[in-house]
């Protein structure tokens, strides 16, 4: 029973990070219909910036995360302006290839700047606490709490502020949004910034319990794709729910089935879903 609870909490932790990354991916997909393969690289850069800010600049963990959010957010915007914007009317293979080019570049750059080693990120929240008989590190509690806070804030931003609602409007109907005078360029920039910021937060939160290395984004991004396909491409609640579902499935699967193959769960899930429903679970069908 205790093991199960422990695993459920682990699932909650992993799921929180998955949800954050998937949210960014789904927002970008929602407004531009681009599967951004470079999103995992943003996640990786987010981890490194936070780490570097802490070890080289001596910033506090929280401050380092703030810097990371800004840097990765801007990087994400740069990507939109320089690459995806010029390619917006191109055949579908091109934006994917372009994104892969960026991904390869950022990974090589990270390796050049910071080396290929696996690095540990220190955290001021290393102590162990006891909650309801469970032994947890404070960092894990922080991950869950911070992720949920970020999601609530994002939800409020998208639903209750004017600028946030323009994102929703554009996701629902791009032409319509342009017709009612929404500046689609601005919305795209904003969305990419948010996506980058979410990736940076996700990476920074999880790095102290995982590791920082150039390839750290590979599995996460692929799982985020799985999540948004499960949750419906472009759907915000779908990304959150999907993230937690995958988090729980993985942590339970790792304990009760095989920890070696836990990473396969997501991909097998996706293969099954897309084999049965080639246009995703929540496709509108027909034309």
């Amino acid at each position: 029973m205790e093991l199960l609870l422990q695993q459920l909490f682990n699932g909650l932790t992993i799921g929180s990070v998955y949800s954050l990354v998937a949210l960014g991916l789904t927002l970008v997909y929602g407004i531009l219909h681009i599967p951004n393969f470079a999103h995992g690289a943003l996640y990786m850069v987010g981890g490194y910036i936070t780490l570097m800010m802490m070890t080289n600049a001596g910033l506090h963990y929280v401050l380092a995360i703030v810097v990371s959010i800004i840097v990765v957010g801007l990087l994400s915007v740069l990507m939109e302006r320089l690459v995806f914007h010029p390619l917006r009317d191109s055949p579908p293979i091109q934006d994917k290839v372009a994104a892969i080019g960026i991904l390869l570049f950022l990974e090589a750059l990270a390796q050049l700047l910071w080396g290929a080693d696996y690095r540990q990120m220190p955290t001021p929240f290393g102590e162990v606490v006891n909650v309801f008989g469970l032994t947890l590190t404070l960092q894990r509690i922080i991950i869950v709490a911070a992720a949920i806070a970020v999601m609530i804030f994002l939800y409020w931003f998208l639903k209750k502020t004017f600028i946030g609602s323009t994102i929703i409007a554009m996701a629902q109907n791009r032409e319509g949004a342009a017709l009612v005078g929404i500046n689609t360029n601005k919305v795209a920039i904003l969305t990419f910034f948010i996506a980058g910021a979410l990736a940076a937060i996700g990476a920074s939160l999880t790095s102290p319990i995982n590791l920082v290395f150039p390839g750290m984004g590979h599995l996460v991004i692929l799982k985020a794709f799985v999540i948004i396909i499960i949750g419906g491409m472009g759907s915000i609640p779908g990304a959150i729910l999907g993230g937690y579902i995958l988090g729980f499935t993985e942590s339970i699967g790792a304990t009760y089935i095989s920890s070696d193959y836990k990473d396969i769960i997501a991909f097998v899930l996706l293969i099954i879903i897309l084999s049965a429903k080639p246009q995703g679970i929540f496709s509108k069908g027909g034309a």
């Binding site: 080019g101 570049f105 990974e107 090589a108």
Partner: peptide, 17 residues
């Protein structure tokens, strides 16, 4: 050797554009 994608990554993106 290790960093060839520093050049070929952007080249990929530029060429496709």
């Amino acid at each position: 050797q290790d960093y060839r994608m520093l050049i070929f990554g952007p080249l990929l993106t530029l060429l496709i554009i």
